[in-house]
Amino acid sequence: MNQTAQASNDHFDAALLAELRLLTGVSPRPNWPDLLGGQGEAPGHFGELYQGAMVSPSASEADHALARKYPRLAAHIAWQDETEPLPWNATRTLLDLSCAPLRTRAGVCIHTREDGDVTANADADKCIRVVKLVLAMAGLQGKRAHVLLQSNIPPAKGCGSSSADVTAVWQAIFRALGVSPTDEALSLLLVFSERASNPVHLRQPCLFAQRRGRILRPLGAAWPAFHVLGFDPGGTVRTEDLPPLRYTANELRQHCVFIEALSRAIAQGDAATVARIAATVARADDRLPHDHSQLASQVKAFRAGGYAVSHSGVVAALLWPRTAEAMRDRKRAMHELRSTGTPFWAWST
């Protein structure tokens, strides 16, 4: 579906635009070329290896530092998380299970001398809004632009289709304008655009505050070495309709244990322990109807190390520490899924 929006009807707060220019390096110029274009790309994910909450004094300090430097931006992002505060000022966080076969590619074309609309080849309100905002930052508000999206990420499944679309468009328009914001800046922009966002732009494992747009803890240089089999048992979930997870003080204590164990396992390259932690955390989150008994049976039948689920969707994935024997076990699991007509994706981290 082609979607058109009237760029000339959008008005952006001048103070917010000034902060975003400082954050990104985008600024008005008197001599933009007649035609600007750029491309971006972002992977999907297949749920989370971890989703929970982290108690960190440094997180509050980072909030205050952001508010001092970018008060308008900070107020908007902080508002997203204030409706469901956690005990001890804990911060919601996650670690994605990145999925290489799933990907969004975006192209942005800007006609700097032509007034007109911002259009897209898909139903892409958030992406159009991103382009309008950056055009205003560049002094090109009201100019004609087009967004082209190509994606194989299934929507409403918990695979990060919206996060990947928006990430790819941010990257494309920044490249069109010749700027390269940092990963930290893009993290903030994604949450600004999406309310809650998966960190599909990050290449190394980290605990990411999906409602604050910040890396809470880097987890090393490399992902755990897995053979993965992700599958879609059916159904859909509208992520934006889900309330933020709430945690009691006792649950936060348990998540502190999870996080420390997860950090050690990733640092040591212990994929088997990471897989077990992912399954344990998945069972603790009961707001979605994942069949944990069936998943546990599949782990046993196919000798997997554990499983991960989408905490905001329907997909799940079996995880094997990467060995030749695990490849054979994964092939057996693929054969069973194929025989039942269940869509699946296989990849290795």
Rank of each mutant, 00 (worst) to 15 (best):
A316Y: 08
L207D: 05
D10W: 14
S197C: 14
S161F: 06
Y50W: 06
R103N: 06
P224C: 05
H201V: 05
F174R: 01
Q150N: 10
G142D: 04
R212P: 03
F208K: 00
A15I: 08
A279S: 15
G116M: 01
A59T: 07
I266D: 03
R264P: 00
G313Q: 06
R214G: 00
A333D: 08
A62K: 15
V257H: 15
L66A: 11
I277Y: 02
S263D: 13
L148H: 13
V108R: 04
S8R: 14
L245F: 09
A62T: 11
Q3I: 09
D285R: 09
P155F: 03
R203G: 11
W88E: 12
D63I: 09
V179G: 03
E114N: 09
D285H: 15
L252M: 08
R175N: 15
R287W: 06
L229C: 01
D241K: 13
A282R: 04
V131Q: 05
E184D: 15
L318R: 10
G116W: 00
D291G: 10
M334F: 03
A284Q: 14
F46S: 12
F192T: 00
S151E: 05
A168D: 03
Q204F: 09
Q141R: 13
V309Y: 05
Q210G: 07
K157I: 02
K143A: 01
E84H: 15
D123R: 13
Q298L: 15
S27L: 12
L148G: 08
D232F: 06
K157T: 02
L97K: 09
R129K: 11
T340H: 14
A326L: 05
L86A: 06
A15H: 15
A225G: 04
C206T: 04
C99I: 05
Q51P: 00
S58Y: 12
V169Y: 01
S193D: 06
S58I: 12
P87V: 02
Y70R: 08
D183C: 01
F258Q: 13
L16F: 10
A176V: 07
L202E: 03
R105Q: 14
D165M: 10
G116D: 00
P43F: 11
L177N: 01
Y307K: 08
R332Q: 12
T342R: 10
A317T: 07
I215Y: 01
A346C: 13
G341K: 05
T340I: 10
T248I: 02
T236D: 02
S293L: 12
V274L: 02
S180D: 11
L73S: 09
V134Q: 03
L22I: 11
Q3P: 02
F174E: 06
D10M: 11
R129M: 11
